[in-house]
Design a protein around this nucleic acid. Structure first.
Length: 810
DNA sequence: AAATCCGCCCTATTT
DNA sequence: GTAAATAGGGCGGATTTA
């Protein structure tokens, strides 16, 4: 029983290492290759040329093969897909491929930039993190089951001495490391702190050695920002102290075999490799799965800030002990045992977050067919791309190339129309129903067979009606619709199983055994990952760096989307609904004549049945929800309350990070009163009280902080903005900043510009009361009041804040 | 000279 | 490093007002 957890090309051994749980296999048969649009003769001639003689050494084999290529020139009168011969060039080593790219002088080269280990997973039939029988024998290899493999997981965190703002690995030592796993809780350090999880070692060198010793026996290592901090720091410290860092599992070296036969033992393969991935680093250890939870949290959750503490609170609702980086040195010097507790809590919550995200990542890894390490660092578009590469390979297609920089720049400038948004009927509404299309874009893609390899195919030109001047093949299913259909069908099956299990559970009304729970949970994760991937295909086709980019396809999809929602609005109105608001794939409506909830719901279901009969079979308009009340302010900004008094807020300041907490709290309180009771006077009172508190300095500093993200390098900003000015101050103090960092600041008093008065919360001596009243508290609540028909004049006679306050304070 | 308007840049949301 | 549609703050130059 074996399961693959990592794949690495060993450049010393010149072959692929397949890391299974507790076993390493070598794959020597698989060689790097790519394709050239030229004949073997042309290539042979080119390579026998004296200038290119050295290139010939790299080539292991030339072979003419039939492949299907997508003709991306839509104006071309040839077919959309063409099957013809290309030359497949197999080389000795991965690094030979870049050298042979000069062959593009002879004709376009294809699939020359797919990393070798990823290529291996595309071409092989191995699904990562899945149990197989007879793994070592390619012909007898069979999947046992879909259970989650028993992976040994551990979290790891490090504390470092820090004098200034940033620790310096040349000077500042590692103070302690902490770990958490199912059966291990430990903090290692070289000062005798008192704590139940403490392990004392002699010095930093021993600390590092002991740390490696612990980690090497685990399969998965969770960190929080380990990519950019813990591992690079650990590596550098170890180098400076002259320590060799190898993560080879105890006993692994004895079990290394060729596929089939035994070979000499080999050690010292698994060391930390730091590589650049865009602006960030990646810390990889061959054979281990390092999962950095920080980027996953950033991608998956929507929070103001993404400190470990914020994420723990979001996921588990617990506040963990927090220590500022600068305070670590103090705690260390004073032998404060809180440092140990803090360090352990970091490891503990990192572990919990890791276990929380792992199943979903495992599912992505299986579906996309790439390693956990890679998949946990991919965005949804990259996952779609690898999924498509897999299916492209299976169907004998040549994958389109990634765009050149020029092509990318060109694509960036291509705009097209998106979803339809109806101007809302502003103000308060009651008895509201909402309906939306289930997976609108994916279902359109499938229904119309929209794909770069089916658009405007010559074979179907005459028999097709044109959509924005385009049509799609009727004879052959396109690559993207095919992949999408697979995902959606599998998801449907899972949903059905889950539903059956659910009713079964209810009928039995009994406690479930463990197997049932695990099975159920896992299917639920699979279902979630399938949904995410399905929903990413439209965005993928419109993504300028995509191989299967097609602006035309994306344009047709949104066009059809607009048509369907507009048609639905029209039908709803004919049916006796008043549509209050609609955005892209869904709408909110009330009945024209006054009615109770029951009448409304009955009518809604009648309407849905009627509409769904007319829709293509893969498309469906669904009931989404019923709401007692709702306030609609503008497009993309509204709030609703359901029967359980649950409030949903969309787009308003309350859900945005770039507003102070006090402004958000006030808006929420006002909305709550208006939605629950419709009492305008009470709402005014809330505002009045907050303003009084603000004036009396009763507001907690934390509630005044405004958070804004840096979205580019500080020098690229063309305008002065508060968060940019604060960022400059941070840099001046010796701090480091990255693109994507979130800056928090408070506006202090004075009469200079707002940007000049923005300071870091820790530096704020006071705050500008009138700024917070005029620019933070009032605008968000006034917009709501105004939408209810309470004119600004009613609230403020002249435009001075003093007068408005006067009105509120009466 | 001050107040106001407006376009631009920028961020963050919704779908 | 999925897309477009959208609102709204702050800045700074242009325009209007006194």
């Amino acid at each position: 029983m074996d399961a693959l957890i990592d794949v690495n090309y060993d450049s010393e051994d010149k072959c692929i290492y397949l890391y299974l749980i507790n076993k390493v296999l070598k794959e020597r048969d698989f060689k790097p290759y790519f394709y050239v649009d030229a004949t073997t003769k042309e290539i042979n001639d080119f390579l026998s040329n004296d200038d290119n003689k050295n290139l010939l050494n790299y080539v292991e084999n030339l072979e003419s093969v039939r492949k299907i290529i997508i003709n991306s020139n839509l104006n071309d009168s040839k077919n959309r897909i063409i099957e013809r011969n290309f030359t497949k060039i197999t080389v000795r080593y991965p690094k030979d491929v870049p050298k042979l790219r000069v062959l593009k002088e002879l004709g376009e080269i294809y699939e020359h930039d797919i990393p070798f280990t990823k290529r291996y997973l595309i071409d092989s039939d191995i699904i990562p993190t899945t149990y197989y029988n007879n793994f070592e024998d390619k012909n007898r290899r069979t999947i046992i089951n879909n259970n989650l493999p028993e992976l040994k997981t551990i979290s790891f965190d490090m504390e470092v001495y820090c004098e200034g703002r940033e620790p310096n690995p040349e000077k500042n030592p590692i103070l302690m490391t902490s770990f958490c796993s199912k059966d291990l809780k430990k903090v290692i350090t070289y000062k005798p702190f008192k704590h139940k999880y403490m392990e004392l070692v002699k010095d930093e060198s021993e600390l590092i050695k002991r740390t490696i010793d612990i980690l090497k026996d685990y399969d998965i290592i969770y960190t929080y920002n380990g990519d950019n901090f813990d591992f690079p720091y650990l590596k550098r410290r170890a180098e400076n102290l002259g320590i060799n860092v190898f993560f080879d599992k105890t006993g692994n070296d004895d079990k290394k075999t060729e596929i089939g036969k035994k070979t000499k033992t080999q050690k010292h393969k698994q060391k930390i490799k730091i590589s650049r991935g865009g602006i960030h680093l990646r810390s990889y250890i061959p054979g281990k799965v390092h999962i950095d939870l920080y980027p996953i949290a950033r991608r998956t959750l929507n929070l103001t800030t993404y400190k470990l503490e914020d994420v723990s609170y979001e996921l588990f609702g617990v506040h963990k002990l927090e220590v500022g980086h600068q305070n670590i040195s103090n705690l260390w010097n004073n032998m404060d045992k809180n440092l140990v507790e803090y360090s352990f809590q970091d490891a503990y919550y990192t572990y919990k977050i890791g276990e929380y995200f792992l199943p979903l990542e495992v599912m992505f890894s299986r579906i996309v067919n790439q390693t956990l390490f890679e998949v946990s660092r991919m965005g949804s578009s990259q996952m779609v791309e690898y999924l498509l590469l897999k299916h492209s390979f299976k169907n004998n297609f040549l994958a389109p190339n990634r765009p050149s920089n020029r092509e990318y720049q060109k694509r960036l400038r291509e705009y097209y129309e998106g979803g339809y948004v109806k101007e809302p009927i502003k103000g308060m509404h009651e008895n509201i129903v909402s309906m939306d299309f289930r997976a609108l874009y994916p279902s359109i893609i499938i229904s119309y067979n929209i794909s770069p390899d089916t658009i405007d195919c010559k074979c179907c030109e005459d028999m097709s009606e044109k959509i924005l001047g385009h049509w799609f093949c009727k004879k052959r299913i396109g690559l993207i619709p095919m992949v999408l259909r697979n995902l959606i069908e599998r998801r449907k099956t899972i949903k059905k199983i889950l539903k059956e299990k659910d009713t079964e559970k209810k009928e039995l009304n009994s406690k479930n055994n463990k197997y049932y729970n695990e099975y159920y949970k896992l299917l639920n994760y699979e279902q979630k990952s399938l949904k995410i991937l399905a929903n990413s295909h439209y965005g993928y086709m419109a993504y300028p760096r995509a191989r299967w980019y097609s602006k035309e396809c994306a344009e047709v999809i949104t066009h059809l989307g607009r048509t369907y929602i507009q048609k639905t609005i029209e039908e709803a109105e004919k049916y006796g609904f008043k549509v209050i608001y609609a955005d892209t794939d869904g709408l909110y409506a009330v009945l024209n004549e006054n009615s109770d909830k029951k009448t409304l719901l009955n009518k809604t279901y009648e309407f849905l049945n009627k509409i769904n009969e007319k829709l293509p079979k893969d498309m469906e308009l669904e009931f989404e929800g019923y709401y007692k009340r709702g306030i609609f302010i503008t497009k993309k900004r509204y709030a609703l309350i359901d029967e359980n008094d649950k409030i949903t807020i969309k787009g308003l300041e309350f859900v945005r990070r770039d507003w102070s907490n006090i402004a958000k709290k006030t808006q929420k309180a006002v909305l709550e009163i208006l939605l629950k009771e419709g009492n305008v006077e009470k709402a005014k009172n809330i505002i009045k009280n907050i303003i009084t508190d603000l004036k009396n300095g009763k507001i907690d500093k934390k509630d005044l902080i405004i958070y804004t993200q840096l979205t580019k390098d500080i020098n690229e900003y063309k305008t002065t903005a508060p968060h940019v000015e604060v960022a400059k101050k941070i840099l001046k103090k010796g701090g480091r900043l990255n693109i994507g960092d979130v800056i928090g600041y408070i506006i202090t008093s004075g009469n200079k510009s707002i940007s000049e008065r923005a300071v870091l919360p820790e530096d704020a001596k006071d705050y500008d009361t009138s700024y917070y009243i005029d620019n933070q508290i009032l605008p968000p609540v006034l917009r709501i009041m105004e939408s209810l028909g309470i004119s600004k004049d009613e609230l403020r006679n002249v435009d001075k804040q003093i007068t408005l306050e006067g009105f509120l304070m009466e």
